[in-house]
Amino acid sequence: MLLCRDFKFDAAHNLIHYHGKCERLHGHTYHLRVTLEGAPDAEGMICDFAELKKIVGELVLSKLDHSYINDILPQPTAEYISMWIFRALDGALVRENCRLSEVCLWETEGSFVVCRREDVKDA
């Protein structure tokens, strides 16, 4: 089964290795979906939604929300941000019955990237 929880955060960035309007400083309201894959445990849950919210809040949102992402990643494309998020969450979301499956990150309402384990070399 897949268990998903959605989050939002606001952040600014600029793409310094890109030639176009996104090389200038600008911001987004990002939409993040964290997906776990697994089976229900003895309590009937893959993961408690409240626990997932706490982990994502501590490891991701506390660092990215209202930040200048270039201070964290030198070329903060949606692709690289999603990989950073996957790596940040992966170890904290390992359970007997589940693990992190994918991270989806929307930069705009219609544009998003999906990052899976195979996309992150050291995960």
Score class of each variant (00 low, 15 high):
residue 1 M to F: 15
residue 3 L to M: 10
residue 3 L to D: 00
residue 4 C to Q: 14
residue 4 C to N: 14
residue 5 R to W: 00
residue 7 F to S: 02
residue 7 F to N: 03
residue 8 K to G: 02
residue 8 K to A: 11
residue 10 D to W: 05
residue 10 D to S: 15
residue 11 A to R: 08
residue 12 A to E: 04
residue 12 A to Y: 12
residue 13 H to A: 02
residue 17 H to Y: 10
residue 17 H to W: 13
residue 20 G to D: 13
residue 21 K to R: 05
residue 21 K to S: 10
residue 21 K to T: 11
residue 21 K to Y: 11
residue 22 C to W: 10
residue 22 C to Y: 06
residue 22 C to P: 01
residue 23 E to N: 11
residue 24 R to D: 13
residue 27 G to C: 03
residue 27 G to T: 09
residue 28 H to K: 00
residue 29 T to P: 06
residue 30 Y to A: 04
residue 31 H to K: 12
residue 32 L to V: 01
residue 34 V to E: 07
residue 35 T to N: 05
residue 35 T to V: 12
residue 40 P to S: 01
residue 43 E to K: 08
residue 43 E to Q: 14
residue 45 M to H: 15
residue 46 I to E: 07
residue 46 I to F: 08
residue 46 I to G: 02
residue 50 A to W: 04
residue 51 E to D: 13
residue 51 E to T: 07
residue 51 E to Q: 14
residue 53 K to C: 11
residue 54 K to H: 10
residue 54 K to I: 15
residue 55 I to W: 13
residue 56 V to L: 11
residue 56 V to M: 03
residue 56 V to C: 09
residue 57 G to V: 09
residue 57 G to N: 13
residue 58 E to W: 05
residue 59 L to G: 04
residue 60 V to R: 08
residue 62 S to D: 15
residue 62 S to P: 05
residue 63 K to I: 10
residue 63 K to W: 06
residue 64 L to Q: 13
residue 68 Y to V: 13
residue 68 Y to R: 11
residue 68 Y to W: 12
residue 68 Y to L: 11
residue 71 D to P: 06
residue 71 D to F: 05
residue 73 L to F: 01
residue 73 L to W: 07
residue 75 Q to A: 03
residue 75 Q to E: 12
residue 76 P to V: 04
residue 76 P to S: 03
residue 77 T to A: 09
residue 77 T to S: 15
residue 77 T to N: 10
residue 77 T to F: 08
residue 77 T to Y: 06
residue 79 E to Y: 12
residue 79 E to W: 08
residue 80 Y to C: 00
residue 80 Y to I: 15
residue 81 I to P: 01
residue 82 S to I: 01
residue 83 M to K: 07
residue 83 M to L: 07
residue 87 R to T: 03
residue 88 A to F: 11
residue 89 L to W: 07
residue 89 L to A: 09
residue 89 L to N: 06
residue 90 D to I: 01
residue 90 D to F: 11
residue 91 G to P: 03
residue 95 R to I: 06
residue 96 E to N: 09
residue 97 N to R: 07
residue 99 R to K: 05
residue 100 L to A: 02
residue 103 V to M: 02
residue 103 V to E: 03
residue 104 C to V: 13
residue 104 C to P: 13
residue 105 L to Y: 05
residue 106 W to V: 03
residue 106 W to Q: 00
residue 107 E to G: 04
residue 108 T to W: 05
residue 110 G to K: 03
residue 111 S to C: 14
residue 111 S to K: 15
residue 115 C to E: 00
residue 115 C to V: 06
residue 117 R to K: 12
residue 117 R to F: 08
residue 117 R to Q: 12
residue 120 V to S: 13
residue 121 K to Y: 10
residue 123 A to V: 08
residue 123 A to F: 09
